[in-house]
Nucleic acid binder design. Structure first.
Lengths: 252, 252
DNA sequence: TATAGTTGTCTATATCAATAGACAAATATT
DNA sequence: AATATTTGTCTATTGATATAGACAACTATA
């Protein structure tokens, strides 16, 4: 274990508003995600981790307890603590970002579940993105992306209500944005813009993505357009940073 | 203020390992960054914020105190609390990502400061990325990007030591990766791959980016190649999520 | 079968985080 | 000048976080 975790600074911040056990849990998650531990590998003993991070053994135990609760680790009395989960999923992002095709090879099964949908007036931001009047009716889809039974994304998407009336039914049936858009004559679409940020998960994210409080989510805000440049979809997606990384496609 | 901040769930998680005051500080930062408040606009009164988030007024005061300390807000007794900082910088990422050109129009001045540099053996990951032997000598540059006097990025970059001997001197002189590479006959280069993640800032990030403990950083891991596909640079960059968002170029 | 190493549990103590209430100090408004 | 609004300060109390030490329970190994 001497070399493992060597890439990161083993530093912990006190009085930060983020408890020490959570910071340590984050570091362990990072180490696992970046491949410092193989699956089923043993973590260093609690005393060693405590010394490494300069905290009490009980503080390390709090961090481990949270990760055990989260299904990332398994502790066995007398033997050690072992890694259960695999590396992060690598979610590709580019001009032709599609949920299902992007995760092929990394997962055996994936789909998008429609959580809810309704019609609402367009905010200024959405109206600008879709090139419609502020306050015009837009259909909002709330979805969750799942891969091998685990939630990997949580998204809100907006479509012009006039042009895409009934898209929620198509979405519920097909479980695919691409397939749903095809029913409205959209055979192809491109990612016009993507803006990326990160924040702590809110209550909705926590529930939908099955995260522990305090987790970080990556946020993308995107506009999809038809090949002739007409905007059709505005969306905000949240990805759990501990389970997903975003891979920007090289050529598009 | 009824409509402002409307986009986010006003929910706070308890027993999360992240203190309530930090969660609220995050939400206020988000609201500012997403344009809910104009510069110099007044925040809602402390009592109103306390009610909105379902916490005590003193908890809100802790959040505001942290942001005042951070230079984001200014509190005036009897008047109110006011927004100082502007919206997030939007940092473009694409095939031709360049630090200086990317921020034109948003800032009046920007440059890259070389913090330190040294030669070290290539780790497995770096060797694979650069297409060299594991353990071969690589030059490591530690840099900080600054715009209008404020730090906006913190990066580590690795170059093959044989081909780019002395690049640290070029970097110190020119303050530009592009200009430094030109001295070694690299007139053009492309972003081959970019992988994105997010985590809490570590001690080094906090110091270099002038952040408060508990802040979140966006992390990009990238490989740059010459037009003929030969890898020349491997880098990991950290951006403060509260001050920078990443804008993916449409055509890359 | 000892022994060393590891996780699990318990008690105790100190500090941080959050709530609660009261009132002072400064500002804006009537 | 009087009043309402808002931030600043103080005391007190509770629960979560972190440290410290001791020992039990379990596993692997010499």
């Amino acid at each position: 274990m001497a070399g493992a975790m060597s890439g990161q600074a083993n530093s912990i911040e006190r009085r930060s508003g983020v408890s020490l056990w959570r910071q340590i849990a984050d570091k362990i998650l990072q180490a696992i995600a970046s491949g410092d531990f193989a699956e089923n590998a043993a973590l260093p003993p609690e005393m060693a981790l405590a010394e490494r991070y300069g905290v009490n053994r009980h503080t390390v135990r709090s961090a481990i307890a949270a990760l055990v609760q989260d299904g990332v680790l398994r502790a066995e009395q007398g033997r050690g603590t072992f890694v259960l989960s695999r590396k992060r999923l690598s979610y590709p992002i580019g001009a032709r970002t599609r949920f299902s095709t992007g995760l092929q090879g990394q997962t055996t099964e994936r789909h998008i579940a429609l959580l809810s949908s309704w019609t609402e007036p367009a905010t200024r931001r959405i109206a600008e993105a879709l090139g419609i009047a502020r306050g015009a009716a837009v259909i909002r889809l709330e979805t969750r992306g799942e891969a091998d039974g685990h939630p990997v994304s949580r998204a809100s998407a907006w479509f012009e209500a006039g042009r895409f009336a009934g898209i929620e039914d198509a979405m519920a049936e097909t479980g695919s944005i691409t397939a749903s858009l095809r029913r409205f004559g959209v055979d192809d679409y491109l990612r016009q813009s993507t803006v990326l940020s990160a924040r702590h998960a809110d209550a909705d994210d926590l529930a939908a993505l099955d995260l522990q409080p305090g987790a970080i989510v990556l946020v993308t805000v995107a506009i999809n357009v038809t090949p002739d440049g007409r905007p059709i979809q505005f969306s905000e997606s949240r990805f759990p940073a501990e389970r997903v990384e975003l891979k920007l496609s090289a050529s598009e």
